[in-house]
Each structure stands twice: as C-alpha cells, then as structure tokens.
Amino acid sequence: TFELKGKVGKVVKIAEDHYLVEVEGDKWIAYSDEKLSLGDRVMVVDVDGLKLKAKRIP
C-alpha cells in the first residue's frame, strides 16, 4: 500500500466519518483534513495501515 502515496484518485462515496476513494481501480477508505465532495480528485498523501489520507487537488 505504500506505493499508493502520491497517486491520484476520486471520491466515490461519503460516509459519516470517512470517504471511499477509488485509486487505480481499487476502492480504499480514506480520511482528509479538509471537507471533500463526491467526485473530487484527490492525491494520496499518506497511508495508515489500510486507510489513506487524501488531499483535494484541482
């Protein structure tokens, strides 16, 4: 999973306390310091076990 750092994905679902992000065809649980919206493009900035930390990108 460490190779996911720096990869770009898309928010495909918003849950109460996390997001579901699709990166290279796989879906991952993600969290972010900022509020994300459905369809936002994100970059993986860190990997915490099986969770990704994501940041919105333009």
Rank of each mutant, 00 (worst) to 15 (best):
residue 42 V to L: 03
residue 32 S to M: 04
residue 9 G to F: 05
residue 2 F to G: 15
residue 5 K to E: 15
residue 27 K to W: 10
residue 12 V to F: 09
residue 37 S to I: 13
residue 45 V to S: 04
residue 3 E to W: 09
residue 7 K to E: 06
residue 22 E to D: 09
residue 23 V to F: 05
residue 9 G to H: 01
residue 25 G to A: 07
residue 40 D to V: 05
residue 45 V to D: 05
residue 40 D to C: 06
residue 47 V to H: 08
residue 1 T to V: 15
residue 39 G to K: 06
residue 10 K to L: 13
residue 36 L to N: 01
residue 21 V to M: 08
residue 43 M to H: 05
residue 6 G to F: 03
residue 46 D to R: 03
residue 21 V to D: 00
residue 32 S to H: 02
residue 36 L to E: 00
residue 26 D to Y: 14
residue 18 H to Y: 12
residue 50 L to P: 09
residue 51 K to V: 13
residue 52 L to E: 00
residue 55 K to I: 09
residue 5 K to I: 15
residue 34 E to C: 07
residue 51 K to L: 09
residue 15 A to F: 13
residue 41 R to H: 15
residue 57 I to K: 04
residue 14 I to R: 06
residue 44 V to W: 02
residue 57 I to Y: 11
residue 16 E to P: 12
residue 44 V to N: 01
residue 53 K to I: 03
residue 30 A to N: 01
residue 57 I to G: 02
residue 38 L to H: 08
residue 44 V to Q: 01
residue 46 D to S: 05
residue 13 K to Y: 11
residue 14 I to N: 05
residue 46 D to W: 02
residue 34 E to H: 07
residue 17 D to T: 12
residue 17 D to N: 11
residue 57 I to T: 05
residue 10 K to Q: 13
residue 38 L to G: 03
residue 36 L to V: 04
residue 12 V to Q: 05
residue 52 L to F: 03
residue 14 I to E: 11
residue 20 L to G: 04
residue 48 D to I: 14
residue 3 E to Q: 04
residue 3 E to I: 03
residue 17 D to K: 08
residue 17 D to E: 12
residue 35 K to H: 11
residue 50 L to R: 09
residue 26 D to I: 14
residue 14 I to M: 10
residue 21 V to R: 00
residue 37 S to M: 12
residue 30 A to C: 06
residue 51 K to F: 07
residue 32 S to F: 02
residue 56 R to Q: 06
residue 21 V to L: 11
residue 25 G to V: 04
residue 29 I to K: 09
residue 19 Y to M: 07
residue 38 L to K: 08
residue 56 R to A: 06
residue 52 L to S: 01
residue 39 G to P: 01
residue 17 D to R: 09
residue 40 D to F: 04
residue 30 A to K: 00
residue 28 W to A: 03
residue 42 V to H: 00
residue 58 P to Q: 11
residue 27 K to E: 10
residue 51 K to D: 04
residue 58 P to H: 12
residue 3 E to G: 02
residue 19 Y to L: 06
residue 49 G to Q: 05
residue 56 R to N: 03
residue 17 D to M: 09
residue 36 L to P: 01
residue 44 V to F: 14
residue 57 I to N: 04
residue 39 G to I: 03
residue 29 I to H: 13
residue 23 V to T: 03
residue 57 I to E: 09
residue 38 L to M: 10
residue 24 E to Q: 07
residue 46 D to G: 06
residue 4 L to P: 15
residue 35 K to Y: 10
residue 14 I to S: 08
residue 27 K to P: 08
residue 30 A to Q: 01
residue 33 D to M: 07
residue 46 D to V: 03
residue 46 D to Y: 04
residue 43 M to L: 10
residue 53 K to S: 06
residue 8 V to W: 05
residue 26 D to N: 14
residue 47 V to W: 09
residue 36 L to A: 01
residue 8 V to S: 10
residue 20 L to W: 13
residue 26 D to L: 14
residue 53 K to R: 08
residue 42 V to F: 07
residue 42 V to G: 00
residue 56 R to K: 13
residue 13 K to V: 10
residue 35 K to P: 11
residue 30 A to M: 13
residue 25 G to M: 08
residue 3 E to F: 06
residue 57 I to H: 10
residue 5 K to Y: 15
residue 37 S to H: 13
residue 41 R to W: 14
residue 13 K to W: 12
residue 47 V to P: 02
residue 55 K to Q: 14
residue 32 S to N: 04
residue 7 K to T: 03
residue 19 Y to D: 01
residue 56 R to E: 02
residue 51 K to S: 10
residue 22 E to R: 07
residue 13 K to I: 09
residue 17 D to A: 10
residue 9 G to W: 01
residue 9 G to C: 06
residue 49 G to I: 03
residue 48 D to N: 09
residue 28 W to I: 03
residue 26 D to T: 14
residue 2 F to V: 15
residue 26 D to K: 12
residue 46 D to P: 02
residue 24 E to S: 07
residue 9 G to T: 01
residue 36 L to G: 00
residue 8 V to H: 11
residue 57 I to S: 05
residue 28 W to G: 01
residue 29 I to E: 14
residue 43 M to V: 14
residue 28 W to P: 00
residue 19 Y to P: 01
residue 39 G to C: 12
residue 52 L to A: 02
residue 55 K to A: 14
residue 49 G to D: 07
residue 3 E to K: 02
residue 15 A to R: 13
residue 44 V to A: 02
residue 42 V to T: 02
residue 33 D to G: 06
residue 54 A to C: 15
residue 53 K to F: 11
residue 19 Y to A: 06
residue 3 E to P: 15
residue 8 V to F: 11
residue 23 V to A: 03
residue 53 K to E: 05
residue 14 I to Q: 08
residue 20 L to P: 00
residue 41 R to G: 12
residue 52 L to D: 00
residue 52 L to K: 01
residue 3 E to C: 06
residue 8 V to R: 06
residue 21 V to I: 15
residue 18 H to I: 11
residue 25 G to K: 05
residue 6 G to D: 08
residue 12 V to G: 02
residue 24 E to L: 11
residue 52 L to W: 02
residue 7 K to R: 05
residue 22 E to W: 07
residue 55 K to C: 10
residue 44 V to D: 00
residue 33 D to L: 06
residue 16 E to W: 12
residue 28 W to R: 03
residue 36 L to T: 01
residue 33 D to W: 05
residue 30 A to I: 04
residue 35 K to R: 14
residue 14 I to Y: 07
residue 1 T to H: 15
residue 2 F to K: 15
residue 34 E to G: 08
residue 36 L to Q: 01
residue 10 K to A: 14
residue 34 E to M: 06
residue 24 E to C: 15
residue 35 K to L: 13
residue 24 E to N: 07
residue 5 K to N: 15
residue 38 L to S: 05
residue 29 I to T: 10
residue 38 L to F: 10
residue 12 V to P: 00
residue 21 V to Y: 00
residue 50 L to D: 15
residue 30 A to D: 00
residue 45 V to T: 09
residue 33 D to T: 06
residue 20 L to E: 08
residue 21 V to H: 00
residue 14 I to G: 03
residue 14 I to F: 08
residue 25 G to W: 07
residue 28 W to K: 02
residue 58 P to G: 11
residue 28 W to M: 03
residue 28 W to T: 02
residue 35 K to F: 11
residue 43 M to R: 04
residue 42 V to S: 01
residue 48 D to Y: 09
residue 45 V to Q: 04
residue 45 V to L: 06
residue 10 K to S: 13
residue 43 M to S: 05
residue 9 G to P: 00
residue 40 D to H: 05
residue 45 V to C: 07
residue 36 L to S: 01
residue 27 K to M: 08
residue 40 D to M: 06
residue 53 K to P: 01
residue 27 K to Y: 08
residue 51 K to M: 09
residue 20 L to D: 06
residue 20 L to N: 05
residue 21 V to T: 02
residue 32 S to R: 03
residue 49 G to L: 03
residue 31 Y to M: 12
residue 26 D to G: 14
residue 33 D to V: 07
residue 5 K to S: 10
residue 5 K to R: 06
residue 24 E to D: 08
residue 23 V to K: 01
residue 22 E to T: 11
residue 1 T to F: 15
